[in-house]
Structure formats: structure tokens, C-alpha cells
Design a protein around this nucleic acid. Sequence first.
DNA 1: CCAGTACTTAGGTTG
DNA 2: TAAGTACTGG
Length: 783
Amino acid sequence: MESGRGFRYFCKMHANFLNDLNTVQRQAADTTEGPVMIIAGAGSGKTRVLTYRIANLIFKGVDPFHILALTFTNKAAREMKIRIGKLVSESDARNLWMGTFHSVFAKILRIEAEKIGYPSNFTIYDTDDSKSLIKTIINELGLDDKIYKPNLVLSRISSAKNNLISDREYNDNAEIIEEDRKSAKSKLGLIYSLYNQRCFKASAMDFDDLLYKTNVLLKKYPEVLYKYQQKFRYILVDEYQDTNFSQYLIVKKLAAMHQNICVVGDDAQSIYAFRGANIQNILNFEKDYPELKTFKLEQNYRSTKTIVQAANSIIKHNKDQLKKVVWTDNHDGEKISLLQAGTDNEEGQIIANRIFELKANHQLANSDIAILYRTNAQSRSMEEALRKRNIPYRIYGGLSFYKRKEIRDLLAYFRLVINPKDEESLKRIINYPARGIGKTTLEKVIATAAEHQLSIWEVLVNMSQLRVITGASAQRLTEFVTMIKSFQQALTGNAFDLATHIARSSGLLKELGADKTPEGVSRQENVLELLNGIQEFIDTESESEDEVQERTLEVFMQDIALLTDADEDEKNDPNRVSLMTIHASKGLEYPAIFVVGIEENLFPSQASLSSRTELEEERRLFYVAMTRAEKFLTLSYALMRYKYGQIQYCEKSRFIEEIDQDLLILPSGAPKSGALLEFDDERTSFRSFNRKEPGIGSLKPKNNAATPLKPKSPTAFTPTRSDFVPDDTSNLSSGMQVEHERFGPGKVINVEGKPGDKKATIIFQAFGQKQLLLKFAKLKIIA
DNA sequence: CCAGTACTTAGGTTG
DNA sequence: TAAGTACTGG
């Protein structure tokens, strides 16, 4: 079958290419048959081993189509493909099945969708969609959303799915029922069932469904399981310590036939237990495959001796761990600096100063440096300080491009056009931009849908037969349906043309164009950027050879559904300091690392203190943070910090005490807040500088002048005119020119409603289309 | 319907 | 403090 593929690569690769690896690494990469577990300490060249192992498989003649490699992020998959491409050939690398669990199995689910009753163009609900649907259900059931908090409900449902507990099993399980009853949330099971029904009716799957339904598919259809067992003869799983039960079982089933399964992980770096990841999977692995060969990668190539020893001294305080000794041949390096600041703001200033010193003394670039923190809220004081010193930075994990409102709005149009049953999208845009479809009308439609067991879309399409809504409202709903249908006609055509057409004729671009504030302009630019992205998508060729897909809008949407902001590439100025949470830093490395806010109740976090397992997870998190550093590691804490606008007094973290103290440089006379060093620019010039409030200097009031004020909205500039005398509008009709006290001149395009309670739709020159109730609106009739 | 105001709440977050 | 939602007057 594998007709001597190795031959083709003989010239390109010298047979001894595995000599680039150390002994254990080489064994791990060359033991290609049978179950293998690789325990890979931090910085031990794990990615390198995976890369070489896959290249080795291809070199030995395995067809890339038969290799499945599951990674933690799409970015990791992309980078690994590039590296493998350089070892073998780009076309072979392209043909690998490589990606996250979610993206790989979403692909498979689309192929097999009809077996489980879904269309292949099913929508993927993201967390916001899920939450919004849960909110709807809670409201419909008349439950209190303070008891049934959408976040909590979702995490409960998610955890059920990740443990493969169906809604039926949930509702039949005495233990679960008792647990929910005790916490006064006995309706959770009902919400779970309704949520599933609604997702199914909307032809939608949430993130957890992608794994759950894969399990259902493989269990219910042995022939499908067989097909993929045949296909995936070699399976590799990265970051195995962070997989959950649902993922574990998928892998176990797929690997059952050939048993060529290789998992790579490090129990010391397991930091996602809080959402279902299970270290037990590693222990299970040994039970499932008694023939297993285990390799321990213990030599660290990343960090100095100091950093490796410090990290080891931390992790040894955890009881639960596999035996492993991480060591390094690297230099001792510098000691770890510990900095103490008076307040969170001062912490930012000290760090910024320190970054200047490091860059000046050690020829580091901004991009060699990362600041890591426990919670996103901590980024503020760091940003402020960096901005003041003109140090360019980039924040990971902020509001990603695809989460911006204007982008979600346009994507909702695309989603609805592709899958008109997608109710979350429909509700989002049916009246945006405003087209006079009010809350009452929509509620009537939803009620009708529930009554007849139809989707909202089906009600809209069959409105004339159902005769629930009549008159002007029905007219506008019909117009909406006609518009969406006309978009659907163009689905097979050019994706960019269709997308642009939708953005224009939905009125979305016009709506955004009406807003002349800087924010408004930037929203418009974002939409244009998305359209550019679609053009770019069309211009790039399809990833894999076996699916020569048309670059339609539908395919584009499938592509971006599972993106995260870790996937965004750095277009402008790559030379920036990186800011991110420790969670987001997993798998990354930098010459210089700052870990900030190492205080009790923050790191370890307050909530983790009550249980040993949670505290140990925090400690692993600290271990991950420290082991990101290659040469320079700086830790810091503050004595005071703002939390929810209140001052909180802090104590340095127990984790600091746990570090081998010989490796630390303790805060030698932490700078008093009276005299900080203030740098002017990137040169080393600096001057002493006195703060305004001696003593408690850094507890300065917020909203200082350094923070740019938000530009005022145009509304604020339009004075309320005392000479404005409104006209009688009881006979207002379409086509009339009017003037509004605040919105200025505009043209009436529609008037409806009973006399005395009329609603007018007016396009204002400067403010776009608005609907106004005439009993309130003060209008002057011009013509 | 629109827009300003009062009130509530707050963890880390793959895809 | 900041963001998001619910309420209310025009």
C-alpha cells in the first residue's frame, strides 16, 4: 500500500537526521509502533520531538493522510506543519490531519453530519451564543437569573458534556438531582434538556458538542468508527495532561485498532483542571495500554540553571506528581530578581524601568520580553506604565477581532444566510440595523414558533398561512425574509462579492458610516478589514490536497469559527513587549520574563485556598510561569492594590517563600515612592523626579491627565436650542423634510400606527436612520 | 423608540 | 473601577 514513499525523500533527508536529537528524544521519535507516552519536562524540546517523530513516520513511508496529530491550539498546529514541511516536503506536511480536537472533529462531523441528524452546514455556537440561549431559556421558564446565573449553568452543562453525561442521564441520575436540589437549582436538568433541544432545532453545536457528538457518532456507528480507525493509523496527542474525558475516549476508540498512539504531556504543567482536564488520563493511559513504552524528557534546553532550580524548588511542594527530574547543562545565569512595590501602579512603573535596564544592559529587544499575570485585570497598571515610557506592547487575550460587536453583527448575517435556523444570529440582526421590527412583533413570532414546533425562520417564511402577524409588521418581516433569501441565492458565488453585497444592502455599512466619532470610524474600518480578510481567503489555496473545496463564504465561515486570538498574526511592528495571562503563555518562551502580582489571594487566588488540589494547580501555574524564561526572570508583588475600585492591602505570596532563597535577589531597598526614576525615552537619559503627594505618593487619584479622555460623542456638541419650536406632527407623512432638536435635518420615509401613537422612520443627514414616537419626538416640519 | 441614569456584580478560559 | 443590564422620562 505505502509504495515506497520513503524513497522519494531519500535525497532530501539524510538518513541520520534523528542525530539532531539527544538519546531519549531520539528513542521517543523513533519508537513509531505501538503505544508511547512521552513525559516532557518544561523546555525539554517536546515540540522538536513531535516534529521529528512525524517527519520520521513520513520518511519511513507512512502516508501523511494516515497521521492524526492533535494539538492544543491551531497556531501550534500551523507552526509544526511548517517545521515538518522543512524536514520532508510542504505538500506532505499539508496533507497531515493536524489541528485542535475541536477543528479536526468539526471537520469529521460535517462529513458525517446526516447520520446524527444534522445538516453538514451546522452552525458552531460560541460561548456568547450559548450564554444568550441559556438566558433566553431561563427567562422563558420564569426562573431567577440571580440563582440560575448563565455562566454557572453553562459551566454545569459543559462539564456534563465533557464527562459524556447526556441530558437524559443527567435527569435520571439520583446523585446529580440531589446535588442540584441541595444547591436550590433543581431546574438545571430541565435547562440542560431544553438547551440541547434548541441547539438541535437551530442546527447548531456548541464547542463541547463537537467532542460529545463525535463520541456519539463513533459509538452509534461502528462502520464510521472503523473507517476512521483505518484512516488514522498513527495518532499523536500533544498537551495530553490538559485533555478531558470526552477527548480521552475519542482518542482511545480511534487508536483501538492499530494501537499506534503517542501522547505527550507534563503533569507538572496541567493548568486546566478547573474546566474538566484530567491528569487521570495519563494514569488511565498506563492501564489501557500495558505494553506502553514511556520516555521521560528531562533535560531542559531553554533556561539557566538558576531558573530550572527555582522552578524545581517550587514544584516539589506538590504531592501529586509523576517522578521526574528536570535538569540543564546551561549556564547558571543571573539570580532571580524579586521586586516589591507600594501599589499596583508603582509595580507597573518599576517593571517598566526594569525593562529599560534590561534592554540597555543585555541588548534585548522588546519582543524578547513578556509580562505575565494571574488575572486580566492586572494588565491595566502595566499598560499605563509602558505607555508612559513609550515602550510598545501587545496584549494577548484582549477583545479579539472576531468578538467585536460590528464583526459579530456582520458574521451573524453570514451565519443566518448559510443556516437560517440559527436563532441566535437571527435574533441578533432581525432588527439591526433598525428596520422597524420591534420587540412585540418578534415575541409574537417566537411564541408562534414554539406553539407550532417550528423554527423562527419557518414561521417567517410561512407567515401568510399562519396569519398571526399582519399589516405593516408583516410587510417588514417579509422584506427581511426576501433579503436573506436573495443572499442565499448567491451563496455559491464569489465569497467576497457576496459578503460585500450583504454588508451594503443589509444597511450595516450605512449604519456604521453614519457614526462619525473615532470609534464609529474604526468600527467601519473593522468591517472593511473583515471583507479584506475574505478576499485574502479566496486568494489563498485550500490547505489540504484531498479536499479541493470552492472558496465560498460557507467555507470561510467554517474556517474562522474555531479561531482564537492566539491565531491572530502580528502584522504591524512585531518588536513589542508581550502582555498576557499565565494561562495564555503556555507553550511560549522568552529571554526575559516578568511575573507580577505574586500576592496571597491573587496568586494563589482566593478561591483556590480552600482545597489542596486547587492550590496545587495554582502552584503548577506558577511553575509554568517561571519556566517560560530563558535567561532573566523577575518576580514582583505590591503591598497595596486596587480591586473593584477599593484599596486592598496585600501580602507577598507563599510561593515566594517556597523558592530556594539562594536563587533570589531580595528587594534591596525597594524604591520609596517619593523618588522614582523616570525615563524620558529609549535612550538612557533619566532624571530624578518627585511625586506630587509625598509619602503615599503612588496612591494617586485615578483619571489622571495621562489617560486620554474619550472623545465626546457628537450629541454632546449639539446644544439644546431654546428657540426650537416644534410643529404639530399629527399629519406627518412619508417624503416630508423635518428637523429634530438634537438629530438635525432628516427625511421621513415611513409613518405608521394609530393617531396619537404614531411611529415615524426618519433618515437624518448626520445620524442615520432612526425610528421615533411622535408623541415624544419634537420635530419641526421644513417641507 | 431613544438615550441617559441607576444599579449590580466581579476567576483563570483551549475551541 | 468598569461593564453590562434594567428602568424611566422625553
